[in-house]
Simulated assay, not measured.
Amino acid sequence: MKGKLFYIGLIVSFLTAGTAHYAHLNTTTQFVIACIAIVFVAGFLGKATESVAHYAGERMGGFLNATFGNAAELIIAFFLVRDGLYDVVKASLTGAIIGNLLLVLGLSIFAGGLKFKEQSFNIKLASHNSSLMILGVVALFIPAIFTGGLTTSENSSMSMIVAIILIAAYLLWLLFSMVTHKNVLSDEAIEHGEAAWSKGVSILFLILATVMVAFTSEWLVGTLEEVTHKFGLSELFVGAFLIAIIGNAAEHSAAVMMAMKNKMGAAVEIAIGSSLQIALFVAPVLILLSFFVSSTPMNIVFTKYEIAAIGVSVFITKSITQDGSTNWYEGLLLLFVYIILGVVFFLV
Rank of each mutant, 00 (worst) to 15 (best):
Ser131Cys: 03
Ile243Leu: 11
Met133Asn: 07
Lys90His: 15
Gly84Glu: 02
Phe205Asp: 08
Gly149Phe: 12
Ile243Cys: 05
Phe68Asp: 08
Val343Ala: 02
Ser275Gly: 09
Ala267Met: 03
Ile76Gly: 06
Thr151Lys: 11
Val343Gly: 01
His21Gly: 00
Gly99Ala: 09
Gly324Ser: 02
Ser120Lys: 15
Phe146Met: 13
Val256Glu: 10
Leu236Ile: 12
Met212Asp: 04
Thr49Asn: 12
Val89Arg: 02
Leu171Phe: 13
Phe346Trp: 09
Leu101Arg: 06
Gly273Ile: 04
Glu154Gln: 13
Ile11Tyr: 08
Leu233Gly: 08
Glu225Trp: 08
Ala139Gly: 10
Phe63Asp: 07
Val343Arg: 04
Ala42Lys: 11
Ser127Met: 09
Lys4Glu: 09
Val39Asn: 02
Val344Leu: 01
Pro284Leu: 02
Ile320Ser: 01
Leu107Ala: 09
Lys318Met: 04
Val312Ser: 03
Thr19Asp: 11
Phe336Lys: 06
Leu5Met: 02
Gly106Thr: 01
Gly9Phe: 05
Gly265Trp: 06
Ile38Trp: 06
Ser130Tyr: 05
Gly9Lys: 07
Met260Thr: 14
Thr29Val: 13
Leu224Gly: 07
Leu280Val: 01
Phe281Glu: 03
Leu150His: 04
Ala240Ser: 14
Ser294Asn: 15
Leu286Asp: 10
Met298Gln: 15
Asp323Phe: 05
Gly18Tyr: 00
Trp173Ser: 14
Ser177Gly: 08
Phe44Thr: 01
Val184Ile: 14
Gly112Pro: 03
Ala267Tyr: 01
Gly265Ala: 08
Ala34Phe: 05
Ile246Leu: 14
Ile278Met: 12
Ser295Cys: 11
Ile316Trp: 04
Glu235Pro: 13
Leu233Ser: 10
Lys4His: 10
Val89Asn: 06
Ile142Val: 01
Phe336Gly: 00
Gly247Thr: 06
Leu175Thr: 13
Glu58Ala: 15
Leu135Ala: 12
Ile109Gln: 02
Gly239Ala: 14
His54Trp: 03
Leu85Phe: 10
Asn129Lys: 00
Trp219Glu: 07
Met60Asn: 05
Glu225Pro: 11
Ser156Thr: 15
Ser157Trp: 00
Leu220Trp: 13
Ala309Glu: 04
Ile165Val: 15
Phe215Arg: 11
Met178Asp: 15
His21Thr: 04
Trp173His: 13
Val293Cys: 01
Ile36Arg: 03
Lys199Ser: 09
Phe346Glu: 05
Lys182Asn: 12
Ile287Trp: 12
His192Asp: 07
Val104Ala: 02
Val343Met: 04
Thr210Val: 08
Leu286Cys: 10
Thr210Lys: 01
Ala169Ile: 00
Val213His: 14
Leu174Tyr: 07
Val337Gly: 02
Ser156Asp: 08
Asn26Val: 00
Leu347Lys: 07
Ser51Gly: 11
Gln119Thr: 10
